[in-house]
Computed example of a mutant assay.
Amino acid sequence: MNNNKGLTILWDFDGTLFDTYPVYTKLFKKVLADRNIDEKDVYQNIKISFRHANNYYNLSEEQLKEFASLEEEIPPQEMMPFSGVEKVLQYANNNVIMTHKLGKDVRKILRYYGWEKYFSEIVAGDDGFPRKPNKESYEYLHEKYNIDLVIGDRELDIIPAKELNIKSCLFQNNKSNLADFYLNDYGEFWTKVVEEFN
């Protein structure tokens, strides 16, 4: 961990640290090959949440299993980090992750990019906490690390931050008015976020 005066940041994973939605959009299209569904439509539904997309497309138990099996086969190099995000990770004094993704999948991707060193803790979907927007996992991480900022790409990522009076930032999502900061890319972090904290 860096010993600078950076922030302690709680990160979401999919759509925030890594640009995974295009890959998941292709998987949904593959699983739902018998339906003529629009890729843009799939992307927008995944962006709300995976649970929402599953319900929206009414995936059967068999389709959910097929999706999980296809997901297992995705090579980590297809899960690309967003440009500029590593500089923010390096700047931060401390980073933690809260994601619905399985811990082994998160660690596999972080290991591939050599990014495990940036994170003090990962709370994943199989760690027993209720799903976001329940604040329990955030409360646990906040008590342990004193979080300064939560960064996510969906409202459900920042609702718990609001409940705990932690500053929040939405990435590539300016449709909500809940966040304190909005970033279209991580190059804006230095002027839009850092300057406000200093």
Results as ranks from 00 to 15, higher is better:
residue 132 K to R: 13
residue 153 D to K: 10
residue 68 A to Q: 12
residue 49 S to W: 09
residue 132 K to A: 00
residue 45 N to G: 13
residue 88 V to D: 03
residue 102 L to I: 03
residue 153 D to W: 09
residue 103 G to F: 00
residue 110 L to E: 05
residue 141 L to W: 05
residue 98 M to Q: 04
residue 87 K to L: 12
residue 188 E to K: 13
residue 164 L to I: 12
residue 43 Y to W: 12
residue 126 D to P: 05
residue 63 Q to G: 15
residue 182 Y to T: 03
residue 3 N to K: 14
residue 67 F to I: 13
residue 26 K to W: 10
residue 174 N to Q: 04
residue 127 D to P: 02
residue 21 Y to R: 08
residue 156 L to R: 12
residue 177 N to G: 15
residue 38 D to W: 15
residue 4 N to M: 04
residue 157 D to N: 06
residue 151 I to V: 14
residue 96 V to C: 05
residue 124 A to R: 01
residue 176 S to G: 03
residue 139 E to R: 14
residue 96 V to K: 00
residue 144 K to P: 03
residue 195 E to Q: 09
residue 11 W to A: 09
residue 157 D to Q: 03
residue 36 N to G: 15
residue 90 Q to G: 14
residue 73 E to P: 09
residue 181 F to A: 01
residue 66 E to F: 13
residue 18 F to I: 12
residue 82 F to T: 05
residue 45 N to V: 06
residue 10 L to D: 01
residue 135 K to I: 11
residue 22 P to F: 14
residue 87 K to V: 05
residue 73 E to H: 06
residue 24 Y to H: 13
residue 64 L to Y: 07
residue 164 L to F: 07
residue 161 A to M: 13
residue 121 E to W: 00
residue 88 V to P: 04
residue 139 E to P: 12
residue 117 K to E: 00
residue 194 V to Y: 00
residue 172 Q to C: 01
residue 68 A to L: 14
residue 113 Y to K: 04
residue 62 E to M: 14
residue 124 A to H: 08
residue 158 I to W: 07
residue 35 R to A: 08
residue 41 D to P: 14
residue 24 Y to P: 11
residue 81 P to Y: 13
residue 151 I to A: 05
residue 53 A to K: 15
residue 2 N to C: 04
residue 128 G to Q: 06
residue 194 V to L: 05
residue 122 I to R: 03
residue 90 Q to L: 09
residue 134 N to V: 13
residue 159 I to F: 11
residue 61 E to M: 12
residue 33 A to N: 14
residue 112 Y to A: 03
residue 73 E to I: 12
residue 147 I to Q: 02
residue 109 I to R: 07
residue 182 Y to I: 02
residue 58 N to S: 14
residue 144 K to V: 02
residue 2 N to R: 09
residue 192 K to D: 05
residue 141 L to M: 07
residue 142 H to A: 01
